[in-house]
Design a protein around this nucleic acid. Structure first.
Length: 259
DNA sequence: ATGCCTCGCACAGCGAGA
């Protein structure tokens, strides 16, 4: 089963690219972030015509998450919004049981500028996610937490093209990284690094600064696997080509295959 | 140090993204 995550940066502007990507890469499950649309503007008909059922948690202008499942797979919502979400007005989490796997689709707050209230919110939201992750972990089911985590795990060139340029950014702060690392220490597996232990693997390239052409990117979109899911991990990667197309999102899709 | 670009909203230019 191939599970992907893709921050599309606007379902309205990105729908043609999204449909093209679904057709080309055929994920079984796709977590989407940054719909930037209220529930009633989710293009359910077009998604269904592409061969996918969907659940979504929209919001006007900002945030918004969805989970798509290929026809034939039962998609059963298990959570909408995080329990103990510090600000439920943000639509940042949706979770479903699909194909025997629990899939949590998340859009972690960016947190800039830091320090400040937005960074505090990022850390508070992370705490609520850690609680949910602990509950899911304890279930001993195969679980995949997939999304835009807005955390660059390390300063290594393998995760970021130039750590100094991002030193003051919320994405690379020690507090953000510590929260991410707590999941790794608790036994969650970073699918990309399990398959590609070394070498640059970027998932985001800024629209500005000619970042894509210079490969000035970093890694913030992750799939974290519970032990029962990690035992089945066969492959993982980034659909870099998607970032190079016209009218592309600034994120590329990331995926993992479970046996 | 700032803007570089893009999105949504709404129809100008701004907030937000990362």
């Amino acid at each position: 089963m191939k599970i992907a995550t893709f921050n599309i940066n606007g379902i309205g502007a990105r729908l043609p690219r999204l449909l093209e990507w679904l057709e080309e890469t055929k994920p079984d499950v796709a977590c989407l972030q940054e719909l930037k649309a209220p529930d009633e503007r989710f293009p359910e008909m077009e998604i269904r015509a592409a061969g996918y059922s969907a659940i979504w948690h929209g919001q006007k202008s900002w945030n918004g998450v969805a989970i798509l499942a290929r026809e034939g797979l039962d998609l059963v919502e298990t959570q909408r919004g995080l329990p103990n979400d510090p600000d439920p007005s943000h639509s940042r989490y949706i979770e479903a049981a699909v194909g025997g796997v629990i899939v949590g689709g998340l859009y972690l707050p960016n947190g800039n500028p830091q320090p400040g209230p937005k960074f505090d919110y990022k850390l508070a939201w992370f705490e609520a996610l850690l609680e949910r992750a602990q509950t899911l972990f304890a279930s001993e089911q195969p679980v995949v937490l997939a999304g835009d985590w807005n955390v660059i795990p390390t300063d290594h060139k393998d995760d970021i093209w130039d750590a100094r340029r991002m030193a003051d950014d919320a994405l690379s702060q020690p507090e953000s990284r510590a929260a991410f690392r707590r999941l790794i220490h608790a036994g969650w597996t970073d699918a990309i690094r399990a398959i590609h232990p070394r070498g640059p693997v970027y998932t985001f390239w800024d629209y500005t600064m000619n970042a894509w052409a210079r490969d000035a990117g970093f890694r913030i979109d992750h799939l974290l696997l519970s032990p029962a899911a990690a035992d089945r991990l066969a492959d993982a990667g980034v659909d870099r080509d998607t970032r190079g197309k016209e009218k592309a999102s600034d994120h590329a899709p990331v995926w993992a295959v479970l046996r």
